[in-house]
Each structure stands twice: as C-alpha cells, then as structure tokens.
Amino acid sequence: MDKRYSLEDLQAIIEKLRGEGGCPWDRVQTHETLREAMLEEAYEAVDAIERKDQENLKEELGDVLMQVVFHAELAKEAGCFGLEDVIEGICKKMIYRHPHVFGNAKADTADEVLVNWEILKKQEKQITTQSEAMKHIPMALPALIQAKKVQKKAADIGFDFTEIGDAMDKVREEIAELTEAIEQGLGTDEEEFGDFLFAVVNISRFLKINPEIALTKASKKFINRFEYVENSALSEGKKLSEMTLKEMDHLWDEAKTKSLSE
C-alpha cells in the first residue's frame, strides 16, 4: 500500500530542503523572492476552477499549500511564528467571524453573514473609519479587484450611485474627459484613463460581475478569435502580416459568427 503523506510530512520535507545539505535553490529563498510564486500558484488554482478540472485543481491546491508551509518555515527560522501558529490563528478567526455557527448570533442568509463578517473584521482590526477600511485593502491585489473593493467600502455607508444608469453616465463623463485630455495633449492621459477604468468597475458592481474574471474571459475570447483568424489565413497560404486590415476584419467577423453558433 502506498504511503499516505500528511501535513507534517510536507512540513518535514520543506525543513529538509531548507536545512544543511538541502536544495541550493530552496535554501536561498525568502518571503520576498517567493511573492510571485504565491500569486502564480493561486491564479493557477483559480484557472483550474474555471476549467472545472478537478484533477488539476488537486495539484494546484497542493502547490498553494506548499507556499503556505514554505513561508511558515521561513518565519519559524526567523523566530517569528510557525505553521502551528498559522493554523491556530485561522481557526480562531473562523470561529470568531462565524458567531451564528459557534455562538448565539443570528444570520439566516449569506448577505447577513457578509454584513456581520465586515463588522467583526473592523472590530478585530480596530478599524474605526471607512477610510481606514479602504487602506486595509491589500495593494498587491489586481487593480480591478482592488477598485471594486474600494467602491464596495464606500457603498457600505451609502456613498454610491443609486442605480446603474448613473454609473453608466459616469463612464460617459470619464470617456469625454479622457478624449479631451488626448486631443489637447494635457499630459494627464494616465490619470484620466485610470478614472475611466474605475468608473467601468462601478458598473460591474451593479451587475454583480467580478471585473477581473470578466476581463480574463474577454482576453481568452480574443485569443480564440485571433487564432481562428490566423489559422484561416494560414489555410489560404497567407501570413497575417501580409494581409490588409480589411481582410483580417473579414475573418474576425467570421470568428465572431462562429463563436456565437458554438
């Protein structure tokens, strides 16, 4: 029978990789050098979820867990905390933030749970103003997600558009300001473009759409249609670089029609 490894086994493996005679690469890693890996592994797990690939999700969750154990080992070596402290901390947090399960609080719907969660989070972190709550949003988050979270914090205290039409009007206003900045060469294109994106994210909130996922799907759709255009050109013995924009647009329209029928 194959050995069934445990969390303790994974911890021991990381310790060995980091120890004397261990792996040269693992031994020189720090929290900072592993930042990108942590993000990449999390995104790869999300990608597996999007593709509904359970086998790959199992693998990617293992990679995410390895990052957690690795960072905990680095902290233990520095005398800060260990994996046991990480586990204790998250257990305490989950119990504290679910008083409707582990205590006497009442929350019958998912929305009520989220309201209570935010209140308890503020109490736990001693956040007294909404501005502080916004500043606690991690800057390492993708910008679209960060913008949505900032807007949600403002909306929580009533600082928000009353309906989606107002949010759409704001987008049109920002487009006009961006257009003016470009035409006049005011040197504020980046700022105005940022305002435009921020306004678009507002619409995603009203539609209950995750803007990061929506943009990712749009990129994937673009790649699929572009692949159709390129393959169609190659089947005719042509390269895209040798075709006119009108010819490529014709193939693009074909790709759009094809994707609608699939």
Rank of each mutant, 00 (worst) to 15 (best):
G185V: 11
I127G: 07
A181N: 08
T33V: 02
Y96P: 00
A12P: 04
T162V: 08
T162Y: 04
E132L: 13
R172N: 10
A78L: 08
F222E: 06
T257I: 12
K125T: 10
T188I: 14
N202M: 03
M168T: 05
N116F: 01
S232D: 10
S6E: 13
C23Y: 02
A37C: 03
R4M: 11
Y5N: 11
R225W: 03
M134N: 03
K256E: 13
K208T: 06
Q146W: 05
D189A: 08
G22W: 00
Q184S: 15
E180Y: 08
A78W: 07
T128S: 09
K170T: 03
D85P: 04
E77D: 07
L83A: 01
S6F: 03
D253I: 03
A255W: 11
S219M: 11
M1D: 08
K76P: 00
D2K: 12
T33D: 06
T109A: 09
E41N: 03
L61P: 04
D156W: 01
A147F: 08
I90V: 14
F206L: 10
F81N: 12
S219D: 13
F70I: 02
G237Q: 06
A199C: 04
R225N: 15
V46H: 11
V201K: 00
T33Q: 05
F226M: 15
Q123P: 02
Y96Q: 13
A214R: 09
D249L: 13
N210M: 05
Q29V: 10
I49F: 07
E84H: 04
G62R: 06
A110R: 13
E77R: 15
M94G: 00
E254P: 02
H100S: 13
A167W: 00
A105Y: 13
M134V: 14
L186V: 04
R51V: 01
K135Q: 12
D111F: 15
K148R: 10
K93Q: 10
E177S: 08
K208M: 03
G187D: 06
T188P: 00
K135L: 12
D63E: 06
K76Q: 12
L7E: 04
E15Q: 15
A42W: 01
E40Y: 06
M243N: 01
V86D: 02
I95H: 11
D160M: 08
E20F: 00
I157K: 08
E254D: 15
V101P: 02
E44K: 02
L141H: 04
E262D: 12
M243I: 04
L186T: 15
F159W: 12
P24F: 02
I13M: 13
A154T: 03
I203S: 03
E174N: 01
L240I: 10
H31E: 14
P138R: 14
V115Q: 07
K256P: 00
S241D: 09
N231W: 02
M94Q: 11
R205E: 09
F161H: 14
A181P: 07
A167P: 02
P211Y: 01
